[in-house]
Design a binder for these strands. Sequence first.
RNA 1: GCCGAGGUAGCUCAGUGGUUAGAGCGAACGACUCAUAAUCGUUAGGUCGAGGGUUCAAGUCCCUCCCUCGGCACCA
Length: 602
Amino acid sequence: MPDYILVAVAWPYASGPRHLGHVAGFGVPADIFARYQRLKGHRVLMVSGTDEHGTPVTLVADKEGVSPKEVADRYNRIIGDDLYRLGLSYDLFTRTTTRNHYRVVQDLFKTLYEKGYILKQTTLGAFASTTGRALPDRYIEGTCPICGYAEARGDQCDNCGSQLDPVDLINPRSKIDGSPPVFRETEHFFLDLPAFAEQLAVWIGAQEHWRPNVRTFSLNLLKDLKPRAITRDLDWGVPIPLPEFADRDDKKIYVWFDAVIGYLSASVEWANNCGTPDAWREWWQNPNSRHYYFMGKDNIVFHTIIWPGMLLGYGSGGEIGGGSVAAESERVPLQLPFNIVSSEFLTMEGRKFSSSRGIVIYVNDFLERYDPDPLRYFLTIAGPENQDTDFTWAEFVRRNNDELVATWGNLVNRALTNVYRHFKAVPQPSALTQTDLRLIEHIEHGFGTVGDLLDNARFKAALTEVMRLAMQVNSYLSDQEPWKVIKTDRERAGTMLYVALRCIDNLKTMMTPFLPFTSQKLHEMLGYEGYIAGPLEFREYTESDGSVHRGLTGDYSGWRGHWQPGSLPAGQALREPQPLFKKLDEQVVAEELARMEQRASG
RNA sequence: GCCGAGGUAGCUCAGUGGUUAGAGCGAACGACUCAUAAUCGUUAGGUCGAGGGUUCAAGUCCCUCCCUCGGCACCA
């Protein structure tokens, strides 16, 4: 494996609080991966931020009578708090409204434009007759000209499935205020995707390590590539960096064009924040680095076609800056993605998440009442890794009580309680039996098997394997019965408990990517000092124009943990054991369902 | 309509052409009672959506059909 790994996490959209489906799709898997790779000793750069431009933010702002920036500020804070509380170990979680981001986005736009990959075309656009704002196709509804369905969307009829053009709708109206739209010609910039079709086909065709659905889906898209508009008639976005558009408030860069560039701009910002402005090049201009992107399946096209197309087009041209500027001949092209880890969707009690219908569990709401590690456990073991999966409260309670608490929590608790009661410290082992050695070896073997699964982004299988190992330690204890042996042979009982603790110490390391909070707690109970992994922190960053923004970051270089068998020192004093997890009352299910019903009807 | 994904034990899901199709949970029985009434062991439970085909061999590959879900590019 290479030394430099970029963990690029999809940017949550800042039009509202994020729900469990969002963090299940990209946040938790990405963090597990990043934490694991750091424990392996690799240089990991994990970046993301809130995606703050685009129509939905302006709609929320209009509705509340505030500016889009105020909406973005609010949800940037709420989402950042969510991610912090979930322990998502970003090297930088920033936002798309920074000067740095604008500068990098404009550089890419300009470079692509100068190289001829951005074309200007005139199209017919819809605008609200009331406010004059542009209406994306999705925000127009009317009667379907094909089947007569009265609530067809501007781009597609949900009834007959036909693809539509909003101009063809009968009796079209704005979904926002019901007024009829006006159609007029408008000029836009288009990314010339067909120019990259051949290169993309060769590249994607060679990515046999991608999840099959990602690869197949992307190859299919290539069959019919069209230039894609990368500007919008909107006042909220990154300005178009061409003289005739610089001061225009009615046309900005399309939110998705700027959002994917965030991976790069956040890396550049991170390097600046660290006082090493060229450090981002170790990931982006290093042919040996590997870039992993984490997202929900709805974002695949942006990460396998559009962003790679932009990167190919940019090549070694332009210079993003942030330090020394290399001569053009010495520039290295930007790295393409190595893997696109796309997840499916999480549904909620059998239904699609829907904020408007109250079928939703917001991350901040969830974390008010429950701990982050049980949620991380559930989202990993039962999350939408390969197919849509369903979140139900009954299943959450069961997974927590019958799996997490019963198997892993109880193993830790029973072992530590025994040791603490009789020894207060890691017992000094005497000669180890064949059984002892076999168990230790078997658990240590897990670093290989679990590690391989994590390298391949098979999080569910990896966690299942760790749980299986925990069961074997439980089995060992039940079989050896140190609590009986101690009455006649204190030395042998101490040895058994030493064996169990040594296995638990190793399982703790394997659990750390999945369950960082309780692993840290266990780390301390085992008598260690310092952080096995963490902590996260918020910092304020001031830019050249004086604007200040908050970033989620952390100094992860001080992590004590290593993805390898530990040598638990005999004699190390333990701290008094506490349960790692809380057992949840069955009543939680009824309470939470009632809460949801109330929200759905209210 | 087109494209794609799925349909495997009561539930949630693994399964890379090759013994008798697996795991966890649930169930039954037994053991243990150190531990958050947790744990450990044993057992039961499946014509792998239906029907054809290829093959020495099919849950796995091919075809047809049924059912569920997703995407279809100016929502992000």
